[in-house]
Design a protein around this nucleic acid. Structure first.
Lengths: 204, 204, 204, 204
DNA sequence: GATGAATGAGAGTTCATTCAT
DNA sequence: AATGAATGAACTCTCATTCAT
C-alpha cells in the first residue's frame, strides 16, 4: 500500500472519529505512521485531504454501483440494488459514512470554488434510475427526478446513522433496506403498474 | 429585543454562513452589535452558543407544530402538516436550516456529554404520528416507526437543501411538499386502506 | 464599619487566599458585599487596593509596636517585644502575613514609582533598636544595623510561614520567639556585655 | 546551548525583571530568540516554565553546595560555606535571586498539587548541618533544627535582596557573610563550646 | 523522498474598568 | 453614592504549514 493511500485511509478514520476541524494533521500522520511533513508531499493542505477522501472513497462506491447496475435493466430492481448497496457499504465502512454525513455539508463553506462533482454524480445516478422507470411507465410521471434523488439520498443518509447512533443499531441492512424500499417503491410506482412488492394492491 | 436573543439570532446567521468552526466569536459579536466579552455574559463558551441556538430554535418549531397537530386527528393530514410546516420553516429561515443540517452531525463529536433532546423530541413526533396511523389501520403495519422517522426526517432535511443550493431553488414549498407526500403517503398507507390520493390503486 | 474599610478587609482576605494577580476585583466586591463598580469610588485601580492594604494594615502594626516600645528602654527587651509582637500578629492575622510575604516582593515590579515607606519605616524600627543597643554598649559594635534589620526581618518573615505551611504548625508563638531570640540576642550581644540569657558566657 | 536551556535562561531573566504574572510568553520567546510556539515544544504551559526554572536552577545550587560540603566535616565551617556560597550565587545571579524571592511564595497558590521538593531539599541541608553540630556538641541543644533552617534561610534570602534594592548595594559578599555568620555562629554555638570567632567570649 | 523541529498567525476567553441608570 | 451590565484590550496556547537536514 503506497503512502498516499495510507494517508487517505488514516484521514478517513481520523475525520470520522473527530470531525474535520477537530482532527489534527499530526493525528492523521500518526495514524498513517508517517511524519507530519510527509503529508504535504502528497496533499496541498488539510482541505485537500478532505476532498481527496471524498473523491476517492465515493469514487469507489460509484464504480461498484455502476458495475452492479450495468447487469440490470429493471428500474425497480436497480433502485433496490442502489439502496441495498449503499446501506451495506455504510454499515461496513462506518468511518466513511461518518465522513460523508459530517463533512458533506461543510465542504461548500470551506472551499467556495469546490464543486463536489463525484457526489453529484453519485446522486444523479438515482435521478437517472427514476427517469428510466418513468420512461418505461413503471414509475409515476408526476415525480420530479431531481427532487426524488434528494429525497432518497436524504432518507438513506439519515437512516444509515442508525448504526453510528448506538440506540437502535440492532436492525440489519436487510430490514432497513426492506422498509425503505417498501415505502419508496410503493410510493413512486405508477398506479396501474406492476409492483415489485407482492403485497401491493395490483391483485384484483 | 434583549441581548441574549440578539446574540442567538446573530449566531444562527453566522453559523449558517460560515459553519461553526470557521465562525469567529467576534463575527457573532459584530453581527449582534455587542462587544466580544458581552457574549460571555450570556453563554459559557462557543459550544454553548451552538447548543442554545439549537435548543431555542428547534424548540420554537416544536411548539408551532405541536399546536397545529393538536387541531387534527387524521394521521395522514397530520403527516401532511408536519411536512409542509417543516419545509415552510426551512425555506423562510434558511439560516436555521443550514445550522441544523451542518451542525446536527457535529454536535455529538464536540460535546460528548450532550444529548440533543430537543431534536429527538422533534423527530419522535413523526414516529408517534406513524404509530397513530397504524393503530387506526390507515398506515401499514409492517413499517417500523423508528426507522420511518429517520427516513422521513432525512428526506425532508436533504430536500430542504434545495433552497440553499442555488441550482434548483425554483421549486415552491407546495411543489416539494406535494412530491414528498405523494411518495410518503402512498408508500406507507395500508394496502386496503382508502388513499388520500384519488389516483391510488384502491379502485378495482 | 464604613465601605472603604470593608473593602480593605475583603481585599486582604482575597489577596491572601489567591494572591494579587489571581484575585479578581469581583472576588473582592463579593467578599465585601458591594458592587464591582463601588470599589472604584474608593480606589483608583487594583494596584491601589494592594498598596492601601499594605499601608493601612502595616500602619496598624507600626502604631502598636511603637506604643509598646515607648514603655521600654532596654534594647534587649525592646527586641524581644518586637519579635514577639510580630509573630503574634502574624499568627493571629494569617491573611495579612500572607499578603506581606507574597506581595512585598511584587510591589516594586508593579508600580515603579511606589516606595513602600510604611514597610521601610517598620523595618527601620529594628535598625534603630540595634543602634540604641550599640550606643549603650549592650550590642556588638561590629554589627551593621542596616544588615541586621534585613537579617532579622527575613528570619521573622520566613519563620512565620510555619503557620501557613501545614507541616510544622504545632509550634507556639512563645516557642518560636524563644528560639529566635536565643540566637539573635546571643548573636548580637556585646561579648563582655551582660546577657539576658543566664546561660551566656559572661561568667568567668 | 540547546533550546530548552535557552528558554530557561530567558525565562529566569524575564521573570526576575517583570514577575511571573506580568511576564508575557512572547517576552520570554523574544529573549530566548525563538518563536512563541517553540516554547510549548519544551514546556506544557507558563506555570511549567516557572517550576522548571526553579527545579533546574536550585538543583544546580544544591549540587554545588553538596559538593563543597562533602569536603568538610566541621559543622561551623559547613554553615560558613553554605552561607557564603548562597550569597555568592545570589549576588552573581541576581535574576535567580529575584525569581526565588518573588515566586517562591506564589507557587503554592498557583499550582496546588505542586510540592517544591527541590527547595525543601535545599533548606533541609541546613537543618542537617545544625543537627550534626548538635550531635557533636558544638551547637546548642535547645535549638530546633526545623525552626533554625527557616530562620537562616529567611535571613539569607532577605539579606540578599540588598543587591537588588539599589540603596545599600555597596556591601560585599564577604562583609554580609561575615555579619551573618557572626550572629548565627555566636547565637547557636554551645555556651561552653569553642567559638570559631576568636573575638568570642571564651578567652578568660 | 522523508523527517519533525520550528514557526507565527490567529482564536477563545478573561477581567479591570467604565458609565448609564 | 451605588450598581452591575457592557466593554474591548490583551494574553495564552494551538496547530497548519514550512524547510533545513
Amino acid at each position: 500500500m503506497n503512502k498516499r493511500s495510507k494517508i487517505i485511509a488514516a484521514a478517513t478514520k481520523v475525520f470520522a472519529k473527530k470531525g474535520f476541524f477537530t482532527a489534527r494533521i499530526s493525528d492523521i500522520a500518526k495514524e498513517a505512521k508517517v511524519a507530519d511533513g510527509t503529508i504535504y508531499l502528497y496533499f496541498n493542505n488539510k482541505y485537500d485531504i478532505l476532498i481527496s477522501v471524498f473523491e476517492e472513497e465515493i469514487g469507489k462506491i460509484i464504480e461498484q454501483i455502476k458495475k452492479i447496475l450495468a447487469t440490470e435493466t429493471d428500474p425497480k430492481r436497480m433502485l433496490e440494488m442502489y439502496v441495498t448497496r449503499h446501506l451495506q457499504t455504510m454499515k461496513k465502512n462506518r468511518n466513511l459514512a461518518e465522513v460523508i454525513q459530517i463533512e458533506l455539508r461543510q465542504t461548500n463553506k470551506l472551499i467556495k470554488e469546490y464543486r463536489n462533482t463525484k457526489f453529484i454524480e453519485y446522486t444523479d445516478m438515482m435521478a437517472d434510475i427514476v427517469r428510466l422507470g418513468q420512461s418505461q411507465g413503471v414509475f409515476r410521471d408526476d415525480i420530479e427526478p431531481d427532487i426524488a434523488k434528494r429525497f432518497f439520498f436524504g432518507a438513506l443518509d439519515e437512516v444509515s446513522r442508525i448504526w453510528t447512533t448506538s440506540a437502535e443499531g440492532r436492525y440489519s441492512v436487510e430490514e432497513i433496506a426492506g422498509q425503505l424500499l417498501q415505502i419508496i417503491l410503493t410510493g413512486i410506482s405508477a398506479p396501474n403498474g406492476r409492483l415489485a412488492d407482492p403485497d401491493g394492491c395490483s391483485a384484483t
